[in-house]
Write a protein that binds this DNA or RNA. Structure first.
Length: 269
DNA sequence: GCGACAG
DNA sequence: ATCTTGTCGC
């Protein structure tokens, strides 16, 4: 797929101030409201029977939306970016890219380390996804432009950020010990800046904590922190993540991409 | 100076 | 993210 906004793509060689300035531009271009080409209710990876009618006709425009899970694995100074595209629970296509990394991991600047490599992998896709699911935050970010938002805006495709830990923001309730399906809003705090038309008051909901799994006894199972990347409201984002279900903590698209990244990595070492 | 941070 | 044995539980 082709970047709709190449000018906003994370470029190497920028100073910290320039990277932050670019993130603000990305945030301004981001849409945190529902602007989807499909009905969220048509997504049901948990129920294959209701969505498997297009297994042999993946290129058609009909049927369930194309959902892409994205994740990475690392080799020394290179990243293995993997993308797995699903349609109603069926894997339609897989693609990967091995790219050189030019930055270390810096909280708040993740998209400048992983964004480029991910775009390399997305460029190899034959199918254009209707939704991108990232391993990392979207709007739950200091400048409301996390990895999911940055890449989603560059591609101008609806995107979701799924993080295993909270970067910033404050949960309405204590997130521990809740049953599967539970969720609570994450609101902007002092660390979040108002950007473009997006406020960052103590009332502003920038994402949700979502318990995707829970064991029978007491074990510690942290919730997922989901946030809209682009063209999605916080509410629809949690709804979609719950529909991407599966029997594990992470959404199925992400799990498959994670496994694929490890598989490819093994061939390069 | 103190705190705090996706992958 | 990555480096790793054993271990608890369905």
């Amino acid at each position: 797929m082709r970047p709709a906004n190449p000018d906003l793509a994370p470029r190497p060689g920028l100073s910290r101030d320039e990277m932050e300035a670019l993130q603000r531009r990305v945030a301004e271009a981001a849409v945190f409201e529902d602007e989807l080409p499909f009905d969220p209710a048509s997504v049901a990876l948990d129920d294959p029977g209701a969505t498997t009618l297009t297994g042999t006709d993946a290129s058609s425009d009909t049927g369930p939306p194309l959902i892409a899970g994205i994740d990475q694995a690392f080799l020394d100074d290179r990243a293995v970016s993997a993308v797995v595209v699903l349609r109603g629970g069926e894997v339609v296509e897989r693609a990967y890219a091995v790219s050189d990394l030019d930055l270390p991991y810096i909280p708040g600047l993740l998209s400048f380390r992983e964004g480029g490599p991910i775009l390399d992998a997305l460029a190899k896709l034959e199918h254009d996804p209707d939704l991108l699911v990232f391993d990392g935050s979207g709007r739950i970010h200091f400048r409301q432009a996390g990895l999911a938002t940055h890449v989603g805006v560059v591609c101008d495709v609806p995107s979701i950020g799924v993080a295993k830990s909270l970067l910033c923001g404050t949960p309405d309730e204590d997130v521990d010990g809740h049953p599967k399906g539970w969720n609570t809003p994450i609101r902007a705090d002092d660390a979040v800046d108002a950007v473009g038309g997006h406020p960052a008051t103590p009332e502003t909901v920038i994402g949700y904590a979502f318990q995707s799994r829970q064991y029978d006894s007491q074990p510690i199972v942290n919730p997922l922190y989901v946030s809209p990347g682009h063209r999605l409201s916080p509410e629809t984002t949690v709804d979609l993540v719950s529909r991407l279900g599966g029997d594990y903590k992470l959404p199925e698209p992400t799990r498959l991409a994670d496994a694929y990244a490890d598989e490819v990595k093994a061939q390069y070492e």
